[in-house]
Design a protein around this nucleic acid. Structure first.
Lengths: 96, 96
DNA sequence: TCTTTATATGCGCAAATGCGCATATAAAGG
DNA sequence: CCTTTATATGCGCATTTGCGCATATAAAGA
């Protein structure tokens, strides 16, 4: 079902995390929590939700856990992510 | 914010309603509740959520309330809806 | 081995959500 | 008017959610 995926995305911090991961690079939790102003435990749990939804994958690297977009995302899901982020951009521009 | 919009869509009955409304036609609550197997009060409330999110508009027509996609939806939001429905289609095909 | 840094998780609690049920409102038609 | 059909909503309740806090786990390095 697409619904759990949408659920995972329907949260400001998680959507912001996805936006950051959209650069194709890996990002550790500590970077994301700083950038997005979340507490450590919250950020960790948010990333678990995204992982559970299959949107991201993680990898242990020394002390860090590196998250990146799931490279196996179907083209349809990738397009959906793009469309969501673009829609968000457009709404923010409209607000300004 | 896009988040409330995603929230509104992240529910099976509501997403199914949006899919039906995607035909551009008007649909009354009684039709949607029958088609989607929802109770009357649930369906009514779901449509209120979609309306509140700006995704649909309604119109009184005798005893009926006709819902349709918000014709003033921005192209970006319309594209997002399409992308979500396409992603859902692709997941369902994958499941089969 | 002790400390530091990074991440995950158990837990308790307050708030939010979702639902059914009953009832209210609205319009049409006998 | 009274009934029927369609829709909306108030309310109570059980479940879920989201959060902070403390603590556990993991890895590195002094």
């Amino acid at each position: 079902m697409i619904v759990p995926t949408l659920c995972a995305l329907a949260e400001p911090t998680r959507l912001a995390a996805i936006r950051r991961l959209r650069d194709g690079q890996e990002h550790c939790v500590c970077e994301l929590m700083d950038a997005l102003g979340a507490t450590q435990s919250r950020m960790s749990r948010h990333m678990q939700v995204l992982k559970q939804a299959g949107l991201v994958v993680d990898r242990r690297d020394a002390q860090w856990v590196r998250y990146r977009l799931n490279p196996a995302l179907s083209p349809e899901l990738a397009s959906m992510l793009d469309a969501i982020l673009i829609a968000q951009d457009s709404l923010e521009r409209k607000a300004a």
